[in-house]
């Protein structure tokens, strides 16, 4: 199966490709929010690299968040455009599970807290247990870094933190005893490619916003009047 992975949940834009013949690659195209400008060109280049045409793709896997709304929608719109145009399967995975699976394949075991920067002084956070498999211990949610830190102030066992939310609030998390901070900030495209094989395709992949648009709405109406 030829699978394309699209990653735009954070400020970085990345693509991954796994081919029927067993090749696999991941490419961080841009790190500074140029998703719209960079993404389709990158997909085109990656396909050419492997002498594939778009219509040779069987499946697209896309990070549905949580993450930066605009970036997510650029990734999703591109994934929807590609899969609708070609009549191929679309699979959505979450940014937090990609952090967990990425860490697990690097050999991390035990409790892992994934934290994606959510702006406005908050992170999108979820807790996993990693051994031979990855198990989610809580649903994804929004929290301030200090709320997360408080929760892990006296852990019974070592805990590992991963994600760009951890890097952004490094000092808050580094102050915790028993805590390991991973440098891995980007949800793993290689994990996305792996998960894409075992997940059923979806007719529509909705972004995992975790925030109502209403808050934005109230703000924007106030601003207008």
């Amino acid at each position: 199966m030829n699978i394309l992975a699209i990653e735009t949940a954070t400020t970085a834009c990345a693509v991954g490709l796994a081919t029927t013949s067993g090749f696999e690659m991941g490419w961080v195209v841009d790190e500074d929010r140029h998703h719209t400008e960079a993404l389709t060109m990158a997909i085109d280049r990656v396909l050419r690299e492997f002498s594939l045409r778009p219509r040779d793709l069987d499946r697209v896997v896309v990070d549905r968040g949580p993450g930066l709304f605009t970036g997510l929608r650029v990734g999703l719109a591109t994934a929807i455009g590609l899969t609708d145009a070609l009549g191929i399967d679309l699979v959505g995975v979450s940014s937090l599970e990609l952090l967990a699976h990425g860490a697990q394949s690097e050999g991390v075991r035990g409790t892992l807290v994934g934290a994606v920067d959510g702006r406005r002084g908050e992170v999108f956070v979820q807790t996993f247990h990693l051994d031979e498999v990855v198990t989610a211990l809580s649903p994804p949610r929004v929290a301030t870094p200090s709320e997360v830190a408080l929760e892990w102030a006296t852990p019974s066992a070592p805990v590992t933190f991963a994600g760009d939310g951890v890097l952004r609030y490094r000092q808050t998390f580094a102050a915790l005893g028993h805590a390991t901070l991973l440098d891995q900030a980007l949800p793993s495209t290689s994990a996305a490619l792996r998960l894409a094989r075992s997940r059923p395709p979806q007719s529509f992949v909705e972004p995992l916003y975790l925030r109502e648009a209403d808050a934005v709405a109230n703000f924007s109406t106030r601003e207008r009047s």
Binding site: H35, D44, A77, I80, G81, L82, A85
Partner: peptide
């Protein structure tokens, strides 16, 4: 950005 991203993807897919 949504229309633009989708349009680029359709164009790429159909060459």
């Amino acid at each position: 950005l949504i229309g633009l991203s989708a349009a680029k993807a359709y164009a790429l897919a159909w060459d």
